[in-house]
Design a binder for these strands. Structure first.
Lengths: 128, 128
DNA sequence: TAGCATCTATTACGATTGTAGGTGGAAATA
DNA sequence: TATTTCCACCTACAATCGTAATAGATGCTA
């Protein structure tokens, strides 16, 4: 399981750790908007499961509370996400782009940004 | 359940109907590559579940075999897919594009195609 | 120190997904 | 017609996910 598959809720928990550094369960729970915030033990369960998947680990303890930190990087998790998503489209990029554009998810600005990113990237690769 | 969520296998079954027209279970099963092809009854189970979700229906009968046809359009299904996917990224397009580019899934040609699509689309919208 | 608040650890349960076996009936074929 | 093949329908089961309750341990506070 080199790149574990994470569900949406698991992703949200990882996001808390990625952007907020090592956190306790309670702190992770509080990163969710009050409206519809999952119960403490729900977050706890998911954290334990993420631990089993080696996506995070117990870094240290404060009082009797464990502090968890991400093991899996945001980038790796998102790579897996993208791969699965492309798999849903038969691995072909074209229909994905078409869908994004048709549905209005992809704006002209996004495309311009993408071009710039591509340019920067190919430059970096040449330099390296 | 206006736009039902479909799993990967369900998607593949729908894909068979979208591209192959109304089909019997056996025919759907045979659209899968021999290597790793799911059992007949596996396909059957998924078809029944898609029926419950109103993603397809029994169109007619040939002999004692039912012929199924898609009710849900490919476009609608993919829209749902994209929405869920974006939801995983917090609904922001930017990190998605960044990820696609970093991972090499999005090539310069894809971006050029995207531009053309965007132009055509804005033209069509103006005309309409 | 007694009690309240907070954590941990364990257990449970329904829904969804992928997987498929078994049984009985219908159709094609020998 | 007898037999083989195919199909429909029902049932089952393990894994994952979201949800959370409960019980027991620990730590803070009056």
């Amino acid at each position: 399981m080199r790149l574990p598959k994470l569900s949406k809720l698991e992703l949200q928990i990882m996001e808390a750790l990625w952007s907020g550094g090592p956190l306790a369960i309670r702190e992770i729970q509080e990163t969710f908007p009050q409206k519809g915030r999952p119960a403490y033990t729900t977050v706890q369960t998911m954290v334990y499961r993420l631990e089993v998947k080696k996506a995070l680990r117990r870094a240290r303890k404060i009082g009797n509370a464990h502090i968890f930190e991400a093991l899996l990087s945001r980038d790796a998790a998102q790579r897996r996400l993208v791969d699965d998503f492309l798999g849903m489209f038969g691995g072909r990029m074209q229909p994905v782009m078409a869908q994004l554009i048709e549905a209005g998810n992809l704006t002209p600005k996004d495309v311009v940004d993408a071009e710039k990113l591509l340019r920067d990237l190919s430059k970096k690769r040449k330099d390296a």
